[in-house]
Design a protein around this nucleic acid. Structure first.
Lengths: 339, 339
DNA sequence: TTGAAAGCGTTACCAC
DNA sequence: GTGGTAACGCTTTCAA
């Protein structure tokens, strides 16, 4: 375990100079630089994280978190993880400020970001709305050397340094695969319930699902309806869908508001033989799995979505660790027995 | 973020004294102690990990890893994770020594441990054989203040400080749950293939499976055979089982040597309508899932089994963090689409 | 262009 | 019993 001190001694220079070389700071003689680099190589030096973190504490890092203030209880788990990482990072003299924005206008998110920047954040984690204004704002921060990590939903065209979240298409494909496995009768007549048309993840999941459905002869999507992630609306549209399509024997809920939809299934006495697959592991969904109405749910590691973005920012700004651009969470399958 | 320095200043004592109080070292006046404790409380002090780690590097920590030298390719993934954590911890002046023991005699494991202790390890991670001699050895280390973490398979009666690995019963129950979901005909006639009778995890998985089977009217276990985790043996016993039981329509492989068993299924032309469920995600299993012969496999996060035990030892010995006793890995379900 | 030294927070050792 | 100080590895600032 070679240290900067070792390199300095062997190169016959001071630690300060070694630091300048290793961090590509200017103001060092080319000869000195190459000498130091040679020694560094020969020692296979890797910087000590504890030392770097300790030193970085003088920076008084502040991070901002912005998430669309959604009613979806999925985000409860994200918030729990957020508060745990907040407490963890506070031990390194590092503060975290959280802003939930209520509506779905990008104005709210942008205002929240501006406010955080004014408060002096050095990095931003955001569960972004899929809107152009947010992309622009992220790029603006990038120019100010404030790195951004997106989570839950990505903005691939922005200059965010990383994304943490689900691979939506894979989730959708997994649901389709499960449906095929569970199918008893050899012919799937499927009702799909989307959430919000404007949310990337809901639409992408459906695409993934369709990818598999297309190449499977006995999977037929009867219709797709939209719940707007609202329980009452979901109840209504599912009722309508099932009433007009007695042949439906499988339902795919791609978003929240699952409970309302399931209520409709029960009211119409259509539980028997009905395959119901969902996403995420919120309490109401768990209850319906226990009950047997839902057979399986596909999840996206909310805890990791809460912690990893901040960990990435912290590592980036303290020990200079460049993150992977795409950090996909696992596509987890839960049934009654492994809930 | 209060530091020891703050506490020292506010209590009117030196940092050394504060350190003595906080770490319950003796040789400090009761009055001083209570004064310091009071101040500490009022500041909600939490020690800084970076500082502790940095300071702990002077201890020159060495950790030993012992695992039964199994042919099971599952352990390949564990080894990959081991080498990644080895490289990670080497940055903190911390060395890791790995010993694989070939046979299944406890003598080998005990010898390996002795050797590591002689080399001066401060902690041990072990995938232990389920034998009395190993338990005794762990307890002996405990007396010498060398903490042990078991992984992959637990020894709950020993004085190990933690276990990292699967909840076997839950794995077995999950397999049973999947089987019920996939069942097409409404009556499961099941063949179970065990691995090693002496390995706790194989037997426990079967118990978990039986728990669910018992309370399900249409699940009937036809017979249980043992492969000794050997491919040829597995091929032979599965061939025998299927030949004498034409009614079998579902197979549960609880351990390794899956490939041989699947070969038998194909040779006998029994793929059609046969449900095949397995554990772990080794290359040959993945191929059989792609092929469609195996419908699902239940996994146990090998990477976490490789890294977490050492992380636990490191945290325990550097920052004094007491681990949870039971660190269960997730019971992951994989099908073709989320492989 | 380079060196020296202080500082991040904790622990350990040597004086008193 | 207690205080002072060096040490862990890195960064940064001030002098030279």
């Amino acid at each position: 375990m070679a240290t900067i001190k070792d390199i300095a001694a062997l190169s016959g220079v001071s630690r300060g100079t070694v630091d300048r070389v290793l961090n590509n700071r200017k103001g060092v003689h080319p000869d000195t630089r190459s000498k130091v680099l040679a020694v560094t190589k020969s020692l296979d030096y890797r910087p000590n994280k504890a030392g770097m973190v300790l030193s970085a504490q003088r920076k008084n890092l502040k991070f901002g978190v912005v998430m669309f203030g959604t009613n979806n209880p999925f985000f409860d788990d994200v918030r729990v993880a957020l508060s745990s990482i907040t407490s963890e990072l506070s031990r390194y003299n590092c503060e975290i400020m959280i802003r939930s924005t209520p509506g779905d206008s990008d104005k709210d998110q942008i205002d929240a970001i501006d406010e955080l920047v004014k408060a002096g954040i050095s990095g931003l984690a955001i569960a972004p709305q899929n809107q152009e204004g947010v992309v622009k704002k992220i790029d603006e921060l990038y120019k100010k050397h404030i790195p951004t990590v997106t989570f839950n939903s990505d903005l691939p065209t922005s200059k965010r340094i990383a994304y943490v979240g689900s691979d939506y298409r894979k989730s959708g494909r997994t649901i389709a695969g499960l449906m095929k496995l569970i199918d008893h009768v050899g012919q799937l007549e499927i009702g799909v319930v989307g959430g919000l048309r404007s949310v990337l993840c809901h639409t992408e999941r459906i695409e993934g699902f369709k990818d598999v459905a297309k190449e499977t002869s006995n999977m037929h999507i009867v219709d797709t309806v939209w719940s707007d992630d609202d329980d009452l609306k979901c109840h209504e549209v599912v009722r309508g869908l099932l009433s007009s399509h007695p042949e439906i024997n499988a339902m795919y809920f791609t978003a929240g508001a699952i409970e309302g939809g399931c209520r409709a299934i029960k009211e119409l006495g259509r539980e028997k033989g009905m395959i119901v697959l969902t996403h995420d592991k919120v309490p109401s969904t768990c209850a319906l799995i226990e009950e047997g109405l839902i057979q399986a749910t596909v999840c996206q590691q909310p805890a990791i979505q809460g912690t990893m973005p901040l960990q990435i920012l912290f590592d980036y700004l303290t020990i200079g660790e460049k993150p992977k651009a795409l950090n996909y969470t696992d596509t987890e399958i839960y049934i009654k027995e492994n809930l």
